[in-house]
Design a protein around this nucleic acid. Structure first.
Lengths: 341, 341
DNA sequence: TTATGATTTGAAAGCGCTTTGGGAAGGAGC
DNA sequence: GCTCCTTCCCAAAGCGCTTTCAAATCATAA
């Protein structure tokens, strides 16, 4: 069932039927009613490609993961995309995913733009000096960055959570509790969010005249195993760090093993704070003791970034959005005053 | 730069240029060379939608997640899709993702088919009696199921791992080690894979004349917290189960907490076996002691399912593939002989 | 030389939609 | 009566490709 057939069956022209279905005003109310009713009854669906060809709009958003596999493995991305894709679906936009293949990330963007496959891009996991933005600008492809690039905040659209503030707050809490040796288990620091977290952490230490010790700082893949290994390593140092600040719940999970293995007590011998992206399969509250966290729903972020991007697509001349979300520090049972050693 | 311009610049017709680029034989060698060279030089890319409209093929594969959010949260899906999408990208197929929105899963399939958005579908997480297959058949949309539906294995294309065999093997190993009370922490049993695992587990018990005790069986979301809670509950029963068989690494992670909390020793007081999908952020070998697992790469499965689907699309008349992968039982440190209690 | 066939190329139709530029019908205003 | 708006509808062009069908070119054989 295509437009032509539908029009014939209604005794109308394609023009009128198309207009009626797409809500154009210059069509009689009675006619519109008839058209919509019949379209529904006959199960008419406009062909997506024909429409896209005619309008020049693809009604699709692209997500590109580096062929390098270290990114998509991060489970937070699936939750981010779930949030974004959910919102897009409600707005009639499809979600295009590109993972791997032999093509490199920049080439995929180029292809997307030149073939008209997507109307916009969500840039994931920006690194400290990200060359993707320049390319997208040149291609004229609208985009919104989830996170920020380096410290520049102008000239591109972004939405980010206040990672610096979050880790600053968290570190300060620990310091206020009397901790002076606080370990940091961070993500790869060429990614901006990790870099910001480290800045927040270091600033809090410096604010209170505490030194920064590279021996109790780690930056790497946020796996359970790295959480375990690094926590174990740090907690074996003397003087032992009395608190650990961690960038992901997976690392927390690993760190807990280390803590148990050393027969230490969480919240007493060692205080733990982790960043919680709100992943449903790894719950900070369900731990024993429940975990003090910096919390921000990655899924909500996904939905919001999608919203900003669609707004940019509908209105390219609008102002570039810059949105920084506050991150809550939720006090639970895994933090306590420092013990004297 | 579109085909028309390129043709003009070359002094050829669109027909010839199109043919040259698409590898049709009826074009002079010298001409083809010139065309390809110029196309490359001028950065020509055929418009995706025009091509799709003309050919009636979308060169895209769809993945639909139920609006019910309990599925996509499972981190194994992102790894599965990464594998599939990777393969597709190499073959020139896009990946379309649908998560959430107000539309229900069946309606999305209908829309995909009627609007021509995808050439095929990968059906995820089939339940025991899945109504999706019937719909897809009616829509004439090629698909491959990752997993099986109920116990019927004919009439549809599928690829699955031998979940029943895997858990049978695992349970039998434990029994051979002298365990007689073995707990099962499973996924939701309306999903076929979980149902199969339970069958394998029960069969192994029955084979050796052991009874099945519902008190030490759990089926639910495979979260860390459920792993912890259920392991804790079971290990507090008397007589205490001396082994736990688990459907996911997240559950293992939670169970480990419970074991530590009860001051039990893994591999001695309690043996653990988990199913490992090969997720890169949660490594069975990195645990202490390292974990005995049933192992099968979900990423490899994704790539294979995509391969089967593309083959079906290229050749719809071909035989329906039925592919069952053996699952290895990898013996590591978390299993040992049962202690007498 | 001419007929024959093989090899290359092109004109034009078509994929299914949107949108431009009118045009017919009907009512209001003079 | 006539003109002038509205209101509602339509024919046709166009989006950028692929593909059918026909024609041009060229070498070869009779």
């Amino acid at each position: 069932m295509n437009l032509k057939e539908l029009a014939e069956r209604l005794g109308l022209s394609q023009t009128t039927v198309s207009r009626a279905l797409n809500g154009y005003p210059e069509v009689g109310e009675e006619t519109r009613r008839r058209v919509i009713e019949q379209a529904h009854k006959l199960g008419y669906r406009p062909n997506a490609h024909a429409r896209r060809l005619a309008t020049g709009r693809s009604h699709a958003i692209g997500y590109v993961f580096p062929s390098d596999r270290s990114i998509i493995i991060d489970p937070i991305f699936s939750d981010f995309i779930a949030g974004a894709s959910d919102y897009q679906a409600m707005q009639g936009y499809e979600t295009l995913l590109h993972a791997g293949g032999q093509e490199n990330e920049m080439d995929v963007y180029r292809r997307y733009a030149e073939m008209g496959l997507v109307d916009g891009i969500i840039v994931q996991a920006p690194h400290v000096d990200d060359e993707r933005l320049g390319l997208l600008d040149r291609l004229g492809l609208p985009y919104v960055v989830h996170g920020r690039v380096n410290d520049s905040e102008e000239g591109y659209a972004w939405m980010d959570i206040d990672n610096r503030g979050a880790f600053h707050k968290a570190a300060r809490l620990l310091i206020d509790l009397g901790h002076t040796r606080i370990g940091l288990l961070n993500g790869l620091e060429n990614l901006t969010y990790a870099w910001h977290r480290r800045q927040g952490y270091e600033q809090a230490l410096l604010d209170r005249g505490l030194g920064v010790d590279p021996a109790i700082m780690f930056a790497g893949l946020m796996t359970e195993e790295n959480g375990y290994r690094q926590a174990l390593r740090m907690l074996r140092l003397r003087p032992r760090p009395t608190a650990l600040l961690m960038s992901s719940m997976m690392m927390v999970s690993g760190a807990l093993r280390a803590v148990h293995e050393l027969n230490l007590t969480v919240g007493k011998d060692v205080s733990l704070i982790g960043h919680d992206d709100g992943l449903p399969f790894l719950n900070a509250e369900g731990l024993v003791p429940s975990l003090t966290t910096t919390t921000s729903s990655i899924r909500a972020a996904g939905a919001r970034v999608a919203e900003l991007l669609l707004a940019r697509i509908e209105n390219p001349e609008g102002e570039l959005p810059h949105e920084l979300w506050n991150v809550d520090l939720i006090l639970r049972g895994s933090t306590g005053p420092a013990q004297r050693s």
